[in-house]
Design a binder for these strands. Structure first.
Length: 110
DNA sequence: TCGGTGACGCGTT
DNA sequence: GAACGCGCCACCG
């Protein structure tokens, strides 16, 4: 065993931790998984998601937009997010200020 | 074995 | 605030 997929499993593990109604960026996942500056691999890993247990739709780019083309599955991703309570702006952008997942602990504990 | 491509991000201009 | 270029690594032909 010890195949290269172990690397992707780490990425999947982080994605699974994204709570419902929240989103995370590719770079954020890469950093949390210990692969800073490897956001591309995160995208590629999600492209080959082997299980439905992985909330791949909660991962978007740093611009707060869906990277996938609407003809590929971006429409599906958007629908999944909307069903979780995520609201898109008129420009089709998700306000990360409000919906980005913050694994770090609240400094104010509010 | 080598080169090009890709669900991206960040710094600089 | 937007656009351009470079970096980083795995997969395909």
């Amino acid at each position: 065993m010890g195949n290269k997929q172990s690397k992707w499993e780490t990425i999947y593990s982080v994605v699974k931790q994204i709570p419902e109604g929240k989103v995370a960026t590719y770079g954020q996942i890469a950093t949390l998984a210990g692969y800073y500056r490897q956001a591309r691999q995160v995208g590629y890993a999600l492209h080959a998601v082997p299980s439905d247990d992985i909330p791949w739709h909660r991962v978007i780019n740093a611009q707060g937009k869906i990277s996938l083309n609407l003809t590929l599955g971006g429409a599906v991703q958007r629908k999944l997010l909307e069903s979780e309570g995520v609201v898109f702006t008129a420009a089709g952008v998700i306000p990360l200020r409000h919906y980005q997942w913050q694994p770090t602990i609240d400094p104010l504990g509010s």
